[in-house]
Every structure is written in C-alpha cells, then in structure tokens.
Write a protein that binds this DNA or RNA. Structure first.
Lengths: 108, 108
DNA sequence: GCTATATTCAACCATATAGTTGAATATATA
DNA sequence: TATATATTCAACTATATGGTTGAATATAGC
C-alpha cells in the first residue's frame, strides 16, 4: 500500500540531524579524517564515529582506510537519490513561485 | 559550532517516514481530506492525523477546514526548502556523474 | 615485540517517535 | 436540540535514536 523505499528512509533520517548536516558541509571542499571531524564537535569521538556510520549507511559519505586513519569524503550516491526524489516535486513548487511572480508583476 | 537549522531537522525527519512520503505522493495530483487519506493505510485514523500534523509542522502540507472535513494539499514551502538545501550538493554529484560518463565514452 | 595513536564496538541511559485506545471537539443534518 | 460524521487530543506503550563510558581492534613507529 505504501511505496516503501528503505534507502530514502535512511537518507532522510541521516539528513535530519544538524551535526550530520554540519559534517556534510565540512566535507564539501575536501575529505577529512574521522579525528579531524571529531575535533569540531562537543561530542565524544565515539559519538562522531556513530554519526559517520549513519551517513555511510545512507551512502552520503564514504570512508577508506589510510594507515591508521580513516579518510571520509562525500559520496554522490545518497545525495543524488534524495535530490532525484525531490525532483518529482520541483515542478510543483517552482510553478507556485511562478504564479506568485506573475501575481506580483505590475502588468503585461 | 553546528549550523543549526531546525526547519531542516523537521523537514527531513518528516520525509524519513514511508507513510508520510506516500501521503505526499497521493497529494501530488490533488488535495484530499484527512479521511480519504486515512482509508489507504492500515493505521488508525488518529495515527494518520498525527502524520499529517508532522507534515504540516514541516510545511510540507497545508490543511484548511471545509465544513466538518479538513482538506489537505501539498505546500511548496517545505519541499522548496529541502530542495534548496540539496542544491548546494547538486554540482558535486552531477560532476561526479559527468566524470563517469566521460570515462564510459569510447573516445573523443 | 611494545607502546602510542586512530577508530570502532558493546553495553547502557534518556529522550523522541510511531503507534494504540478512548474521550473530546467541531460541524452538518434530521 | 439530538445525533451522526470528521477530526483531534490525551494518555499510554514499544521501539529507535543520540549520547555516554570503557574495552577492543588496527596500524605506525621505536
């Protein structure tokens, strides 16, 4: 009865947390190690590590080992999936905004 | 320390539930009453009503009373906000896909 | 091999969330 | 006004989530 798409559950759930969104923001320009990321938050290392696991399950980030560190980078998979989902609704709200602009336009 | 944006918390939290995404899908072509929506789910009326409250707080839907019914329709506000957020990352994953296409292209 | 550094795992706790049931409210109609 | 229909509210329950602490694992370097 419900179009059940577990991947969207996990992706949107991941995006619903401000610390996780902040991690994504930091990863935008470049990859970071887990430790580098952890420094910026008033949380335990373990808590940040768990946030990264959540982001990884959602395929919003990827990790790869580099010596004793783990390098974390953005992954386009999850972000693309979320974006594709919202694209279904994009026409709707763009058209509403168009109508608003039309309404605000003085004349012609 | 964290770019805290409560509206995105609420919007993505709303989108993380399959029943709520299904409700949005049903509202795409036209508005529905709460009762019409509730019919489609194996949940109590109250449960569906609560899902709608969550969607409303996220400004993903709007309700307006019409006699003893409540008409529910999509609201562009929340959807637009989520879409704008993801747009920051769109370049990233589109460029990754471009690179993939480039890689797959036979030659030239 | 021993020790330090980087990260994860396991167990636990508090709070939030999705669901229920039954009562309350709002409106339409006889 | 009384009754039926549509919806929400309140109280409660079970499970999920975000956090902690302390132990475990993996790798680097002496």
């Amino acid at each position: 009865m419900v179009e059940y798409s577990k991947d969207l559950d996990v992706i949107f759930q991941s995006l619903a947390d401000p610390t996780r969104r902040d991690i994504l923001r930091r990863l935008r320009p470049r990859e970071h190690t887990v430790g580098e990321l952890a420094q910026h938050y008033d949380l335990t290392f373990a808590a940040v590590s768990k946030h990264l696991q959540v982001l990884e399950r959602a395929r919003l980030v990827r990790k790869r080992r580099s010596g004793r560190e783990q390098k974390v980078e953005l992954s386009p998979a999850g972000l693309g999936r979320a974006d594709t989902y919202l694209a279904q609704y994009r026409i709707l709200w763009e058209e509403k905004i168009d109508r608003l602009e039309e309404f605000l336009k003085p004349n012609k």
